[in-house]
Design a protein around this nucleic acid. Structure first.
Length: 435
RNA sequence: GGAGGCGUGGCAGAGUGGUUGAAUGCACCGGUCUUGAAAACCGGAAUGUCGGAAACGGCAUCGGGGGUUCAAAUCCCUCCGCCUCCGCCA
């Protein structure tokens, strides 16, 4: 959430950002609630002050005088209770409303209504040339017996899959390759250099986070997607839709010394999404499933380096995708397509020959201190205490990158060449062939 | 799943209903002493929030939430976490 003081001092900016993100906010109502909330709180505090003073005096008194003093304080107590009853709903409405206000945006963000207005800012590599008609990932996978959708549908329903055989080995290889790279200081240092930025070369700490998250925490980090989330209502728990959901609150209620920053994590977890409202969209194969595995990056930094940390994130995404040799475009996400908590967002879209299109495989979100205000994650430097800035980014959404590999590395005979960089992690295997 | 114990400031650790926002020690910051350092001695220092230009003041905070009471770190309920034992289990 944004700071109410910031909203008051920069109302136009906040309003403008919200509008560009296609959100309408009732600022008058917000300020009204804030005024009322504060006024009631001040009255309550004043009465409490009286009550505390009076109670202190009672300790010294005795006899009938004592009893009359107690009666007096009881009256104050009743007044406080009345005010608190008025205060509670005001506070609740205020908090609900302030949580709906999206983050402000970086000046460079392209303004646009929806994803069609995202801006391609870079293209890497070339479309692979085929002397045959390239197949989509499901045809390839079926032929090589790498995915079983039918059985998954029988067992679990639509939008689930069994991954099998060498595709499983390839997932593990991707994980190995990614974790090895991101825990290597030299790799981080070279990406930082490549990006032309000046931040520490701190390697990423591998993490396997929980895949369930409590209601309150999910709300606090702005990751409530309503009917997109699998919920266990009676337990107050939710399945995460990304490792980011449980990585972002990893430092909740902590104040970290600035010299420990940045804190960089690479997490691996399964993600769960209901995909409500996407009926008929991307139905074939494993492009859009209820359950998929993902390697996710999360960085906690100070305010000054937050934007550069995002450059590092994007640099890592490019590095990893380039390692696989897959043609991609880097996209600056426009206001209408970016997330509410985002200050700046970039996507990477990989070329999928089977679909003859670029499709989103990575995203990188810079949230400034929007998330950490709710979970109270702070850092302390010589100027005082501030909320941490967070960046999260996809290292690999495994399902989608497997698709990209299958489609880009397919051969005329239906086999798939294993990208060089993965071969050492697959026992030196060079080709996935029909058995 | 059953039985019991515990959760206090950066750390350790007092405190079981009334000047306790919290003793004491360590660590930390400033000063005295010293050529310098150490030691010793003196002093300072929690966080959030509201009001205030500031000085300062109010309120809240002893795992979280709720309750009893004029008054709660202290009593009660509940949730969370940690520890010990039993059971079950990958």
């Amino acid at each position: 959430m944004l700071d109410i003081k910031f909203i008051r001092e920069n109302t136009e900016l906040v309003q403008d950002s919200a509008q560009k993100k296609n959100k309408t906010i009732d600022f008058d109502r917000l300020f009204d609630l804030d005024d009322t909330r504060k006024k009631l709180q001040q009255e309550i505090d004043a009465l409490r002050s009286q009550q505390n003073t009076a109670s202190g005096a009672i300790a010294q008194a005795s006899g009938t005088e004592r009893q009359s003093m107690i009666d007096e304080v009881s009256k104050i107590k009743k007044e406080i209770q009345d005010l608190e009853e008025q205060h509670k709903p005001v506070k609740e409405e205020f908090e609900a409303l302030i949580y709906t206000i999206p983050n402000v945006i970086d000046q460079t963000v392209p303004v646009g209504a929806d994803e069609d207005e995202n801006k391609v800012i870079k293209t890497w590599g070339n479309k692979p040339e085929f002397d045959f008609t390239p197949q989509d990932h499901m045809s390839i996978a079926n032929n090589l017996d790498l995915v079983d959708i039918e059985k998954a549908a029988e067992v679990s329903g639509s939008r689930f899959a069994y991954l099998k055989g060498d595709l499983v080995m390839m997932q593990m290889a991707l994980m190995q390759m990614t974790f090895n790279a991101l825990t290597n200081r030299d790799v981080i240092a070279s990406i930082i250099k490549e990006q032309g930025i000046d931040i520490p070369d701190t390697p990423f700490v591998p993490i396997i986070p929980p895949v369930m998250i409590r209601d309150e925490v999910q709300t606090a980090i702005h990751r409530v997607f309503g009917d997109q989330t699998y919920q266990f209502k009676e337990d107050g728990l939710n399945m995460v839709a990304s490792a980011e959901h449980t990585l972002a609150p990893y430092h909740m209620n902590e104040t970290i010394d600035a010299d420990r920053l940045p804190l960089r994590y690479v997490g691996y977890s399964t993600a769960f999404r209901k995909e409500a409202g996407t009926y008929g969209k991307d139905m074939g194969g494993i492009f859009r499933t209820h359950q998929f595995d993902k390697i996710e990056l999360e960085i906690f930094s100070n305010k000054e380096t937050g934007a550069d940390e995002q450059k590092l994130m994007v640099g890592i995404q490019e590095y990893l995708t380039q390692q696989l040799g897959i043609h991609y475009q880097l996209v600056h996400v426009c206001t209408g397509d970016m997330g509410g908590p985002d200050y700046n967002q970039f996507d990477i879209e990989c070329w999928l020959p089977g679909q003859d299109k670029f499709r989103e495989t990575h995203t990188s979100d810079y949230m400034t201190d929007f998330q950490t205000r709710g979970i109270n994650s702070r850092y302390k430097d010589e100027n005082g205490t501030h909320y941490l800035h967070t960046n999260d980014a996809t290292a690999f959404a495994i399902g989608r990158i497997l698709i990209a590999i299958l489609e880009n590395y397919q051969n005329a005979d239906g086999s798939v060449t294993v990208p060089d960089v993965l071969q050492p992690y697959m026992g030196g295997r060079q080709v996935i062939e029909k058995v």
